[in-house]
Design a protein around this nucleic acid. Sequence first.
DNA 1: AACTGTGAAAGTGTTCACAGCC
DNA 2: GGCTGTGAACACTTTCACAGTT
Lengths: 221, 221
Amino acid sequence: MIGEVTVPGIPVATVARLPSYLRALRDLVARGVEKTSSVELAELSGVGPAQLRKDLSFLGSFGTRGVGYDVGSLAQYIADALGLADEHRIAIVGIGSLGHALANYSGYSQRGFHLAALLDASPDVVGRDVAGIVVEHVDALEDVVAREGVSIVVLATPAAHAQAVATRVVAAGVKEILNFAPRALQVPTDVDVRGVDVGSELQILAFHSQARALAEASAQS
Amino acid sequence: MIGEVTVPGIPVATVARLPSYLRALRDLVARGVEKTSSVELAELSGVGPAQLRKDLSFLGSFGTRGVGYDVGSLAQYIADALGLADEHRIAIVGIGSLGHALANYSGYSQRGFHLAALLDASPDVVGRDVAGIVVEHVDALEDVVAREGVSIVVLATPAAHAQAVATRVVAAGVKEILNFAPRALQVPTDVDVRGVDVGSELQILAFHSQARALAEASAQS
DNA sequence: AACTGTGAAAGTGTTCACAGCC
DNA sequence: GGCTGTGAACACTTTCACAGTT
């Protein structure tokens, strides 16, 4: 296994669900709801109530028995647990159509992130303004990371360049990478990589689709 | 838990890794490599060799002891296991900047998918040509699904509309949904939903970043 | 009466280590 | 000698069921 950094007492599976809980809680806040229950919040988050309560129990004890949870304070507590109190500065490398879409994603600041820089290798793109930021040349990666205090890099380059860029990103001291290129990245074990690959997701769905078809075919005995 | 369809003898965790193996194998094919080992293939896929061998053992016995695996035939076997032999027809709903990027993703046909339709609600987009396909109005969703034989829908709508569209998609008989909207979808248990949310991924990375910072702070005792 | 928090049980997934085969 | 395939050990995750609290 490559690039997995497990740290305190919170299970990784739990950490992966905390953002869903936070999203659901912020929806409730936006709707003016002030208290909720594990059943309601679990439904909004797409998990079971027991799982939700177990997950929250790793962070502490935030509900009131017989009553439920205070929406606002629970949201705050989860945000703190996720480390959203300090601002995380992001750079996107690879400003193709996906990079453009990611740059225009409006949710960064609401979610505790600041989009600090955009980088690309193509002269057609470098110097242009995208989402209010001037795209810089990827050659300046190390400088940009240092200047902007980037702690998370989003890779949206073509697959062929992803590893080379990742290697430089790691050398520049960045420990958190979100990789959209369809390649497994080779990085030191103390660097965290999360990969998002549309093709893989579709293939997993295709598997389930086929499994369903086979199950139905054998059901009509 | 919502929308989980477990079927034959292959563990879900294994299924989720098969696309990585397939990707690595196709790279090897492209580079003209004809045989590989569990160590090499695992490295290219970002997993451990034991895990790779265990995963493959659920599909059958495809290597030769003392020798390794034939790249081409293993790739074919995994592709078949994933159900990529039959073509899967996809529709994307929501042609904003992310929908555009997804429509322009070039890997569909190489990976056994056919992008059959694009749908949106905005008159600014409906009727326009995106990636060689004319965008249709989302009101025609049911017709388009039937006409094009769509089996997988990619949701790239604003979060506020995602549930309503998903409900219609399910009513139209689609069982596989890839959801890019930052919302948990309420669907019947026989429908499969996979969610991809950039915000959540960043938050998970932020957690690890913070965990690292805390660990370092306590290490300098 | 209602709902949380949590040990204990059940279920999954991963890793080890070696037998089996070329 | 080298590498696969796999039972068995281990680790992690989820679910259950109920004691504890308001």
